[in-house]
Simulated scan of single mutants.
Amino acid sequence: MRLAPLYQQEQKQAKQRGIQQRERLVVQNLLKVRFSEIDNQLQAIIEPLLRLTPEEFTPLLLQLSREELIHRFC
């Protein structure tokens, strides 16, 4: 059994998890800055937002109102 391919796969997966965590933090921080806190309604839209690329979710978070975000993603 060769360990190098397994190690490379694990390394790739760890990198992907790190990217996903950073994207989640970006979304959460933008929501906090825009709306002061993340209540249950805003918490509910984080997962759907993360299905988009950063290029897609960033303008939405900066331009749409709270109500528009909730309506679009809930």
Score class of each variant (00 low, 15 high):
49 L>Q: 01
20 Q>P: 02
74 C>G: 07
24 R>K: 15
19 I>C: 05
2 R>H: 08
63 Q>N: 15
59 P>M: 10
16 Q>T: 10
3 L>H: 14
67 E>I: 11
16 Q>C: 11
59 P>D: 08
51 R>A: 13
41 Q>K: 14
36 S>V: 02
60 L>R: 13
19 I>Q: 08
28 Q>K: 13
64 L>Q: 10
64 L>S: 05
3 L>P: 01
51 R>N: 13
29 N>D: 14
55 E>F: 10
10 E>W: 11
61 L>R: 06
34 R>A: 12
28 Q>L: 03
39 D>G: 14
16 Q>W: 03
51 R>Y: 06
45 I>E: 05
74 C>R: 09
38 I>A: 13
64 L>V: 12
32 K>M: 13
32 K>Q: 13
1 M>Q: 10
35 F>V: 02
40 N>P: 00
46 I>L: 02
54 P>A: 10
70 I>P: 00
16 Q>I: 12
26 V>W: 01
12 K>E: 02
14 A>G: 08
36 S>H: 09
8 Q>R: 11
52 L>V: 03
31 L>D: 05
48 P>G: 09
53 T>G: 12
52 L>E: 11
13 Q>Y: 04
21 Q>D: 12
18 G>A: 09
8 Q>V: 07
55 E>S: 15
43 Q>A: 15
60 L>T: 04
36 S>K: 04
36 S>I: 02
14 A>V: 10
37 E>I: 08
64 L>Y: 05
18 G>H: 09
59 P>S: 04
28 Q>D: 03
41 Q>S: 13
5 P>S: 08
48 P>N: 11
65 S>Y: 01
